[in-house]
Computed example of a mutant assay.
Amino acid sequence: MTPIVTVDLDRWRAGGDAAAEVLREVDAGMQRAGFLLVRGHGVPQGLPAAVRTAARRFFALPEDVKQRYATSVGGRGWIGPGLEANGYAEGTETPPDLKETFAVGADTRIGDATVDDVWFLGNIWPGEVAELEILMAAYTAAMHTLSDELLALFTQALSLSRNPFEGLASRPTWTCNINWYPPLTDLGPPEPGQFRIGPHTDFGTVTVLDREPGAGGLQVYTDEGGWEDAPYDPSALTVNIGDLLAHWSGQRWPAGRHRVLPPQESAPEEDLVSLIYFYELDHDARVTPLEPPIGKVGGLEPVISADFLRTRLDAITLG
């Protein structure tokens, strides 16, 4: 048994009884864990593998070369080791996460520097791995399309008469992180309480994860089962909701709490690359929580997307 259900978007798109069953599965799965495995996602076959190959070329570059593309959490470029600790987002003090990241994001500037210089930064591409720019353009376009479709799926799962996100995501903020988790042989033994990514929930609406399975891999938390290894399906993407969508749902659906285990002694040479697309909304989108009986908690205040996200990003940034 697993707390994460698998849904097929092709069955939902087909309509009728099959679609109704998918919607029931989505609501039940989200209430249980805030996670789904999603088949029928439409991402071109072979594209994630091509992105990984290019990313591994980048992460294998000497540190002084990667340093030319260095940035901080929330920026664009290389986020080196020791700069991020996701456990701080939920108030857990942990050593730095055991990973390196190459981050890209929304760059469609709106003409207001106070907004653009935070949410719509220009992307930085390594000349040493020229193919990465083209590959990531294709990959993030597929993720954007899928994320909009997932928001439509979620509103139907709650039997809403209209999709409120259609007016809130005309120029959304998003980030796509390529996370490299180095092997134990490179890092040495982890510190006590240190993870590849510490326990946390994501911040936005939906997160779409293409991951590799491993001994030091993803775990998901539920109240019923505690921490459990996340199931892996090579034909599916792992999807979880973040704090912003959980707030919108009136806490009917919990943000998916998760962590990535440290490298394991049983697999000392294991290195993993994950592709993580964090979708949000327009920076100035006003999100009004659903009241009961759809929502679980009444009286929650509306929030502005950018303000809501900023406090959480600041919490996980070290130094």
Results as ranks from 00 to 15, higher is better:
T2C: 07
T6H: 04
A14E: 14
A18C: 11
A19P: 09
R24G: 11
D27T: 05
D27E: 12
A28I: 05
A28F: 07
M30W: 09
Q31N: 12
A33Y: 04
L36N: 09
G40Y: 05
V43C: 14
Q45L: 14
A50R: 08
V51N: 00
R52K: 02
A54H: 03
A55L: 02
R56S: 15
F58P: 11
A60F: 13
E63H: 09
V65G: 06
K66V: 05
R68S: 10
Y69I: 14
T71Y: 02
S72D: 13
V73C: 09
V73N: 09
A85T: 05
N86G: 15
Y88F: 15
E90N: 12
T92P: 03
T92I: 07
T92W: 02
T94Y: 11
L98D: 13
F102Q: 01
V104T: 15
G105R: 07
A106C: 08
R109E: 10
D112Y: 14
T114I: 09
V118S: 04
F120G: 09
L121Y: 15
G122Y: 11
I124V: 15
W125C: 14
A130M: 12
A130Y: 11
L132N: 10
L135D: 13
L135Y: 13
A137T: 04
A137C: 03
A142S: 12
L146Q: 12
D148I: 13
L150E: 02
L151Q: 02
A152D: 05
F154K: 01
Q156Y: 00
L158I: 03
R162F: 15
E166M: 07
G167D: 14
A169G: 15
P172M: 07
C176T: 13
W180M: 10
Y181M: 09
Y181C: 10
P182F: 04
P192F: 00
Q194V: 11
P199H: 06
H200C: 10
T201I: 03
D202Q: 08
F203C: 14
G204I: 06
D210S: 15
E212L: 08
A215H: 12
L218N: 04
L218C: 07
Y221Q: 05
T222K: 13
T222H: 12
G225M: 03
W227E: 04
E228I: 09
A230V: 03
Y232C: 11
S235M: 05
A236Q: 00
T238P: 07
T238H: 05
V239K: 02
N240D: 05
D243Q: 03
L245D: 01
L245R: 00
H247P: 06
Q251K: 08
P254K: 00
R257Q: 01
V260P: 01
L261Q: 10
P262N: 01
A267G: 09
A267T: 07
E270T: 06
F278T: 00
L281K: 01
D282I: 07
H283K: 10
A285C: 02
R286T: 15
V287R: 04
E291A: 04
K296Y: 05
V297P: 06
G299Y: 10
E301A: 04
E301Y: 02
V303N: 03
D307V: 12
L309R: 05
L313C: 13
D314L: 12
D314S: 13
D314V: 13
A315E: 14
A315G: 15
I316W: 04
T317N: 09
T317A: 13
T317V: 11
L318D: 04
L318V: 08
L318T: 06
G319P: 13
